[in-house]
Nucleic acid binder design. Structure first.
Lengths: 213, 213
DNA sequence: TGTACATCAGTGAACGCGCGTTCACTGATGTAC
DNA sequence: TGTACATCAGTGAACGCGCGTTCACTGATGTAC
C-alpha cells in the first residue's frame, strides 16, 4: 500500500506562475519575494529567472493574459448591446458590458488573484514604470464613456468621465473589500458573481443617471 | 548674504512621522523601508526605534490620530442630521455624514497620506494582525446602517449592508484612483474636496435608493 | 557660583537575515549519421 | 544498432545589497545641594 507516484506532474513553469499570482495578489509587487514564490512552487529560486527573466517580466506574464481576455470580452459586449435599448436600460447594459467580464472572474479560482492584483494597482503609485496600467485600457474606457455620452447627450464630458470612473472604482473594490464580510458575517470572497454583478450594475446605473441624467 | 540658519528646527520625531506617512501611503506597510524613511527624514535609522519601538508601532502612530478624529466627526455628523429630513434627502445626509470627514482630508497635505493608506489597507490581506482595521470602525458602520434602515424600512439587512459597503468602497477609491486623472487629463489629486464629496454623495444616494428603495 | 548627577536626544557600528540575480554546472532526452 | 552531439529543464552555490533591530556610547541640557 505504498503511495502512488504522481502520474503527471504539473510543469515547474506553471507551478511558479500560479504561486506568483497568489503572492502578487496578497502582497503586491514590491512586497512579494521570488524566493518565497519558488519555495511555495517547490522550485529552485534560479528557475524563476530561467523561465521568466526577472520579477517584472513574471508579473507581466501573470496579468497579460487576463488583460487581453478582458479587453476583448468588454469590447464584444459593448458592440453586442441591443440597439433598441434607451435611457436607464441602455446605461445598465453599458455598465454591465464593462463590469461583468471582470467580476465573473471571481468564480474562477485561477483568475481571482488577478482581481486582487488590479484592485491594488489602481491606488499604487510606486510600481516600476513598465508594469503600470497600459494606454490600451484607457482607450477602451474612452469607448465606454462615448457610449454613455450618446445615451445621455445633455451631460458634460467631465460628469460622464467621473460617473464612469466611480463605476470602475466600485467594480474594482467591491469584490476584494474584506470589511463587508466582517460587518455582514458573510464569506470574504463573493460566492455568486452574477448576484454581485447585478447589484453593482444596479447601484452604478442609478448613480450615473443621478449625476448625468 | 549667507543663508540664514534655520531658527526653529522641526523635531526629529515629527520629521520621521511625516516621512513614514508618505512612505506607507506610497508603498504600503511591507514595502516601506525604515532606512529610507530615516534617510528622507534626515535621521539615524536607530532613532526610528528610539521613538517608536518598531515598524508596526510607527504605522499605528501614523494612523491612530486620524482614526479617532474621523470616528468622532462621523458620529457627530450622524447625530446632527436634521430629524425632519425624509427619503432621499435623509439618505444623502447619512452618506454625507460618513464620507465628508474622510474626503475633506484631501485638502490637508498632512492627512492626504492617510487616505492612501486606508484605501490600500481595505484590499490588503497580509498586514500584521496588530495593524488591521479595528472593531471600532465596524461598530460605527453598524450605526450608519441602522440609520439607513430606519429611513428605508422595507429594505433587507443584506441589501442595506451591501449598499453601504459600496458607498464606503467608492469613498475609499475615488480620491486615490490615478486612472481617472489620466483619462480626463485632470490633476491626479482632487483639487476641490467639497465637489468630490457632493459627487460621491449624489452617486451613492441614488445607488442606495435603487438597491433599497 | 561650583559641582555632581540625571535625563534627554540621539549616534555609529554591528547583528543575522533574506533579497533579486548570476553563473557554471548536470543529467535526462532527442536527433543525425 | 551505436555513437556523437545538441537541446532542454533545471540546480547549487555564490554575488553584493538592503533590511529591521540592538546596543553600547556621547554630548548637551537640566536639577539638587
Amino acid at each position: 500500500m505504498a503511495a502512488k507516484p504522481k502520474p503527471t506532474r504539473v510543469p515547474t513553469r506553471d507551478r511558479i506562475l500560479a504561486q506568483a499570482a497568489r503572492h502578487f495578489a496578497e502582497r503586491g509587487f514590491n512586497a512579494t519575494s521570488l524566493r518565497e514564490v519558488a519555495r511555495d512552487a517547490q522550485a529552485n529560486p534560479a528557475s524563476v529567472h530561467y523561465y521568466f527573466g526577472s520579477k517584472e517580466e513574471l508579473y507581466l506574464e501573470v496579468i497579460s493574459g487576463f488583460r487581453e481576455r478582458l479587453s476583448k470580452e468588454r469590447n464584444d459586449a459593448l458592440l453586442g448591446i441591443n440597439p433598441k435599448l434607451r435611457g436607464a436600460r441602455r446605461i445598465k447594459a453599458i455598465v454591465h458590458a464593462y463590469i461583468a467580464p471582470h467580476l465573473r472572474l471571481c468564480a474562477d479560482p485561477t483568475a481571482a488573484h488577478y482581481i486582487r492584483i488590479v484592485a491594488r494597482a489602481t491606488s499604487e503609485t510606486h510600481y516600476p514604470r513598465e508594469i503600470q496600467i497600459p494606454k490600451e485600457i484607457n482607450t477602451l474606457r474612452e469607448a465606454f464613456v462615448r457610449a454613455l455620452a450618446e445615451t445621455l447627450p445633455t451631460a458634460s464630458q467631465e460628469r460622464l468621465h467621473k460617473a464612469f470612473t466611480f463605476t470602475v472604482d466600485l467594480m474594482l473594490l467591491a469584490p476584494v473589500d474584506t470589511v463587508y464580510a466582517a460587518l455582514a458575517g458573510k464569506p470574504a470572497w463573493p460566492d455568486d458573481p452574477e448576484k454581485l454583478i447585478d447589484e453593482v450594475a444596479e447601484f452604478c446605473t442609478a448613480g450615473i443617471m443621478a449625476m448625468c441624467g
